[in-house]
């Protein structure tokens, strides 16, 4: 760390002579030590998953949720400093709520990501604050425009002008927001400790082709989290997963926990893969010995 002792890392609002904001870079370091979280944008929905490292045997299994619902159709998972993540979620809920209040419709996922990006960016500009120690993955499924507007009472005119432009409306979306406030849309996203391994696995799925269904994505997500945990084997972890389908899918357009049966099935497959990998490794070792 060449920056240490130069003085340019002492305050948020100060650039170093080569154009870096060290406080933001340190915030990224905080993220890199957090439990792995991933998001997959499948063709008919979004899956979010997180590896929760169990800090104490006295913690109640299944409690202390890390994936949060922001609005009916949107969820957030994050890696890094959990209290910062909680505050991020609070703000995201406020944004979603205020959007509903003025426009009577759910907030588009892109708009949610944009507003949260702006919010995080503001925390990089003042000496009195520190940047968020999290990278957040925001997932949502936007409606096709045919949904009921909040509080609407009639069906509107059956004839006459109106209608919407042809083409794609709504669908699944996934965004990653970094401590700097930078955000991009992704097909597959990973952050936290095991992000390198997870990203490698996500790339193999060829998500951009749009062949992976939501249910497959749940199973892949479990596999990826189990795989990413391999480098951190000395600690126990718990898998938490949520999903959002379209209105005609299994969650009815809502952000929900993955049902117990499906989650158990996904974890069983993930463990099976894990073990078969281990066996292969052992075989290789044996061959090497020969």
């Amino acid at each position: 760390m060449t920056s240490i002792g130069t003085g340019y890392d002492l305050l948020n609002s100060i650039f170093s002579p080569d154009g870096r904001n060290f406080q933001v870079e340190y915030a990224v370091k905080a993220v890199e030590n957090g439990g792995t979280s991933i998001g997959i944008r499948a063709k008919d929905g979004v899956v979010l998953a997180v590896e929760k490292i169990i800090g104490s045997k006295l913690l109640k299994p299944g409690a202390n949720k890390r994936i949060a619902t922001v609005d009916e159709h949107a969820g957030v998972v994050y890696s890094g400093m959990v209290p910062d993540g909680r505050h991020f979620v609070d703000r995201a809920r406020d944004e979603a709520q205020s959007w509903r209040q003025t426009l009577k419709t759910p907030i588009p996922t892109s708009e949610l990501a944009s507003r949260m990006g702006s919010y995080l960016q503001a925390y990089t500009m003042y000496g009195s604050v520190r940047p968020f120690g999290i990278t957040a993955i925001v997932g949502g499924v936007d409606g096709s425009g045919d949904e009921v507007i909040d509080g609407v009472v009639g069906s509107g005119p059956s004839t006459g002008a109106g209608g919407k432009v042809d083409g794609k409306h709504g669908g699944p979306f996934l965004y990653v927001i970094e401590p700097s406030g930078q955000y991009w849309g992704y097909y597959g996203a990973a952050t936290g400790k095991g992000r390198q391994a997870a990203k490698a696995e996500l790339e193999k799925l060829d998500l951009a082709a749009g062949n992976i269904t939501l249910e497959q994505a749940v199973k892949e997500a479990a596999k990826i989290i189990y795989n990413a945990h391999k480098d951190n084997k000395d600690k126990d972890f718990e898998l938490e997963m949520s999903w959002i389908s379209g209105v005609d899918g299994p969650t009815g357009g809502r952000h929900m926990e993955v049902p117990q049966e499906l989650k158990e099935e996904a974890e069983r497959l993930a463990r099976a893969e894990d073990e078969s990998d281990d066996e292969e490794d052992e075989k290789k070792d044996e061959k090497m010995e020969e």
Binding site: E72, Q97, V153, S242, E257, Q260
Partner: peptide
């Protein structure tokens, strides 16, 4: 009153979203 009904249904919708923050599990 229909407009008061709209006000109440929007309020209830928001309530149900807030309820889902705590438990997003289907069962």
């Amino acid at each position: 009153d229909i407009s008061d009904m709209q006000y109440i249904t929007r309020h209830l919708h928001q309530k149900s979203i807030e309820e889902s923050y705590a438990s997003s599990s289907a069962n």
